[in-house]
């Protein structure tokens, strides 16, 4: 009968719960990508107000359906596009600078590709169909001077810039795109013109491009002066990665 009243008996349960939550978090850190690909749309469906990138795909168009969803990042809003006044210039260290209207850009030799898009913050979209112009086409028009080594790209948002070395710009899957997944480029995706560099993280793929300037020295773009590597080449997966 010397049993204590029940409410006096205590256990150190809080710390166990705390550890339990941490273990759950650690588990998530190991398996969540695997889980997300299995559960499919559940995680994606929580995205707020995202446009379906595949809305222009019809079954007989031959255009693949992209897998995954874009997250839209802007640093200075979405600039307005007026096809009547918009000009696209290529200048700097070139023999004959050009300034083109939107219709003139559309009439340039066109190319298309299907490539993956990898963001530096971890998300990716596979099999995105892009149509646009190769940088090589533009360089043939403007004839770079021998001292030109880099291309600086300007966004119409007035803030974002990026740069590519000429070698990187001439890689076969680098594209200045004006169509995406069988439809005009959505405005939040860079309408009317955006860069696509599949082998580099998405911050290299500057949107709303309106000017290319050829220079002799490297320029560090918006995120690069804010800490991102100047060489945006995508890191290979960890060789010990078993969770692909």
């Amino acid at each position: 009968m010397d049993e204590k009243p029940k409410e006096k008996v205590k256990a150190r349960f809080g710390r166990r719960m705390f550890i339990g939550f941490l273990v759950a978090g650690a588990l998530g850190l190991v398996v969540s990508r695997e889980l997300a690909s299995k559960v499919g749309g559940l995680f994606d469906s929580m995205s707020l107000g995202e446009r379906d990138p595949a809305k222009g795909v019809s079954p007989d168009s031959g255009i693949p359906r992209p897998r995954g969803k874009f997250r839209i990042y802007t640093v200075n809003g979405v600039p307005e596009f007026n096809p009547a006044t918009w000009r696209f210039t290529v200048d700097g260290l070139v023999e004959s600078p050009v300034s083109l209207s939107y219709n003139e850009v559309l009439k340039l030799p066109k190319d298309s590709q299907v490539s993956d898009f990898q963001c530096v913050t971890g998300w990716q979209v596979w099999d995105v169909h892009w149509e646009g112009i190769r940088i090589k086409t533009l360089l043939e028009m403007v004839k770079p001077r021998p001292e030109a080594r880099y291309i600086k790209l300007y966004s119409s948002d007035g803030e974002y810039t990026e740069s590519l070395s000429l070698e990187d710009a001439l890689v076969s899957d680098v594209l200045l795109a004006y169509r995406m997944v069988g439809d005009a480029l959505p405005e939040e995706q860079g309408m009317p013109l955006r860069l696509v560099v599949p082998k580099m993280y998405g911050y290299k793929s500057i949107k709303w491009v309106h000017r290319l300037e050829l220079t002799d020295k490297v320029h560090y773009g918006y995120w690069e002066v804010r800490g991102y590597p100047g060489d945006a080449t995508i890191r290979p997966e960890n060789p010990f990665d078993i969770f692909i």
């Binding site: 978090g25 929580m46 530096v120 913050t121 971890g122 995508i234 990665d241």
Partner: peptide, 27 residues
């Protein structure tokens, strides 16, 4: 921890960064 991995992504393997962003977002 997941935020640090997302922030300092260049020091972590890519699979870990994607997992970190999923945990961070869903939590």
């Amino acid at each position: 921890v997941t935020g640090l991995i997302m922030w300092q992504f260049e020091h972590f393997p890519r699979w870990l960064v994607s997992n970190a962003i999923l945990v961070h977002d869903n939590l």
